[in-house]
């Protein structure tokens, strides 16, 4: 029984991490849009390349934030949560 419980905990943590990383789609699309528009702008005005590039990098970094939230949650679920949850289970069972 205990093995089953621990297995469910580990499996659900891995599943949760995978589901959390679905959020990676959003920043991918957003940054792709940003870079596409930046390329267009540079094509139209090649002399403003430096400004456009630095603004694009800045915007990309901000668009990345939601993806990074998901990443932090996934990393916590993989490396931190299993140990913690198994400890809670053990304490509940009195071992």
């Amino acid at each position: 029984m205990l093995e089953l419980a621990i297995g469910i905990i580990l499996g659900c943590c891995a599943l949760g991490a995978g589901v959390a990383m679905i959020a990676g789609i959003g920043p991918g699309i957003g940054e792709g849009n940003a870079v596409a528009k930046a390329c267009e702008a540079i094509g139209r005005q090649p002399e403003s390349k430096g400004n456009v590039t630095s603004t694009m990098l800045f915007g990309c970094a901000i668009a990345e934030t939601t993806g990074l939230y998901a990443l932090v949650i996934a990393i916590l679920l993989i490396f931190v949560a299993p140990n913690m949850l198994i400890n809670v289970l053990m304490r509940a069972l009195g071992r």
Partner: peptide, 16 residues
Amino acid sequence: LSMTFRHYGNVLAGSV
């Protein structure tokens, strides 16, 4: 919170 997670998440993700 977002400033923290942005910086730390990027570096940690790179190393992982």
